Simulated scan of single mutants.
Amino acid sequence: MNEVWVFHGTGGRMTSGIFTSRKEAEEFIANYRLSGSLTKYPVGISVYDWAVQEKLFEPRKPEQFEPGFIQRFTAATQEHYHYEAGKPSSSEDSELG
Rank of each mutant, 00 (worst) to 15 (best):
A75I: 00
P42E: 09
R22Q: 14
P88L: 01
Q53P: 09
R72F: 02
K61L: 14
H82N: 08
A76D: 09
G12Y: 10
F57V: 14
Q64G: 03
V52D: 09
R33Q: 14
L38D: 05
E26L: 10
T74L: 02
A76C: 01
E79L: 13
F69E: 04
Y81N: 01
Y81G: 01
N2P: 14
E27V: 15
V4D: 01
I18S: 05
E92I: 01
K40G: 02
Q64T: 03
S91N: 13
E66C: 03
E63C: 03
K87D: 01
G36K: 15
L34A: 10
F19H: 02
G68N: 12
G12E: 12
Y81K: 11
H80A: 11
F19V: 00
W5N: 03
F7S: 03
L38M: 08
F73A: 06
S94I: 00
G97I: 00
G17A: 11
G17H: 08
Q78H: 04
A76P: 00
F57E: 11
S94D: 00
R22L: 09
K61G: 02
P67H: 02
K55T: 14
S90A: 11
K87P: 01
G44D: 12
A85F: 13
H8K: 15
A76I: 10
S37N: 12
F19G: 00
I18G: 02
Q78R: 14
T10W: 11
S37L: 14
S21V: 03
K40L: 15
E54Q: 15
L56A: 09
G17W: 10
I45V: 15
T39Q: 11
G68L: 08
W5M: 04
S37A: 15
V6H: 02
I45C: 07
R33F: 13
S21E: 04
G97D: 09
S90G: 06
T20H: 04
E24N: 08
L96C: 00
F19P: 00
V52R: 15
P59S: 08
F65A: 04
Y81R: 07
G12A: 11
A76N: 05
Q53I: 07
A51K: 13
P67F: 06
W50A: 13
I18W: 04
A85W: 11
V52Y: 06
E95T: 02
Y83A: 09
D93M: 09
R72V: 03
Q64N: 06
S37E: 14
V4H: 06
V6D: 03
G36F: 14
E24R: 10
L34T: 05
E63A: 02
G44H: 12
Q71R: 11
A30L: 08
R13H: 05
T10K: 14
Y81Q: 01
D93S: 14
R22P: 04
N2M: 07
P59Y: 09
G17S: 05
F73G: 07
S16K: 11
T15Y: 01
F7R: 06
L34P: 00
M14C: 02
G12N: 11
L34G: 03
G36P: 05
S46W: 04
K87F: 05
E27M: 14
I18A: 10
V52F: 06
W5C: 01
M1A: 09
E3V: 11
T77H: 04
R33V: 04
S94F: 01
Y81A: 07
E95D: 03
P88N: 06
P67Y: 03
M14V: 07
S16H: 07
P67A: 06
G11E: 07
E27G: 00
S21R: 07
